[in-house]
Amino acid sequence: MSALAGSLADLIDTIETSPVADRDITARALAYVRDGVLTGEGPTTAGRVHFSRSLDRDDAAWCERILTATAVARQPVSRAEAEALFQIDAAATERVDNGRFDDLLAKAVVHHAAAASGLPVPPRAVALAPDTAIESWAPARAADISVDVLEWIAAQMRGKRHGNRKLGAMVAGLAGAAAALPLAQSLPAFTDLAL
């Protein structure tokens, strides 16, 4: 086992066995997934053929495993974790995961946005599950989401090669509902991002 793999193994051990952990640990574990997507090498790609800049089902499964681990299961998704997911999204120019990562990214970002805005959110295992519809728990009104959080999401999505349709549609709905707010003028055209 390489030093790199040992470090990831230590992070995984901490988040899967500790009763509670700092969410920065999960963000660091997600960085290993990002590096594996970028290079096609590393502990998250070991034992399988993986092309650089490609995101596959195993990469999405790594992200889900990390984000729903025991130590962070009852904590809302942090900004650092959401940023790590945006970095993975940007690193992947090819997708062979049947849409699972895009679903996970959208749910994790909205989970963070709602919690950072003081709204209650379901546990990660429920909110991030593939069979849970994001609309079943996500905020429906833009007025409920912090302006700072909406601006942060807009900055993360601006200028991306490929937009996340689910996240774009959710944010477009929130931005559309907030058309009367001054923030709406500073947001990018989410309808373009959602296409």
Rank of each mutant, 00 (worst) to 15 (best):
F101C: 14
D131Y: 12
L67Y: 04
R74V: 14
V121W: 11
I88R: 07
H111A: 02
P76Q: 06
R95V: 06
E64R: 13
A116F: 09
L128G: 09
I134M: 15
A106G: 06
A91V: 07
I66Q: 05
D131C: 10
A138Q: 06
I134F: 09
K107S: 03
T70L: 14
I88G: 06
A60S: 15
R124Q: 00
P123S: 00
L104Y: 03
D102L: 03
D59F: 13
A140D: 15
A91L: 09
Q75Y: 02
E94W: 13
A113S: 04
S54C: 15
W62L: 13
D97S: 04
W137V: 03
L55I: 10
P120I: 01
L119F: 04
F101W: 13
T70D: 06
L67W: 04
R65K: 15
W137C: 03
S52V: 08
D56L: 11
T68S: 09
L105T: 00
H111V: 04
E64K: 08
R95G: 06
F101E: 11
E64G: 07
V110Y: 02
V110H: 03
I134W: 04
A106P: 10
A71R: 01
D58M: 15
V109K: 04
I66G: 02
A140N: 13
C63N: 07
A116D: 10
R79M: 13
R57N: 07
H112D: 00
I66R: 04
A73H: 11
C63P: 07
P120H: 01
A84K: 10
L128M: 09
L67D: 01
A115L: 01
A113G: 01
A108Q: 04
R65T: 12
A106Y: 05
E94L: 14
I66E: 01
H111G: 03
W137K: 03
S117V: 11
V96A: 15
V110I: 15
A115R: 02
A113M: 02
T68F: 07
F86Y: 14
A140I: 15
R100T: 10
A140K: 15
G118E: 02
G118T: 00
T93K: 11
A91C: 08
S78F: 08
F86V: 14
H111L: 05
A127E: 03
C63W: 06
R57I: 08
L55V: 09
A108V: 02
W137L: 07
Q87F: 14
F101A: 14
G99P: 11
E94A: 14
A80W: 04
D59Q: 12
L105N: 05
Q75I: 01
I66K: 07
A115C: 03
T68Q: 08
A82V: 05
S78L: 08
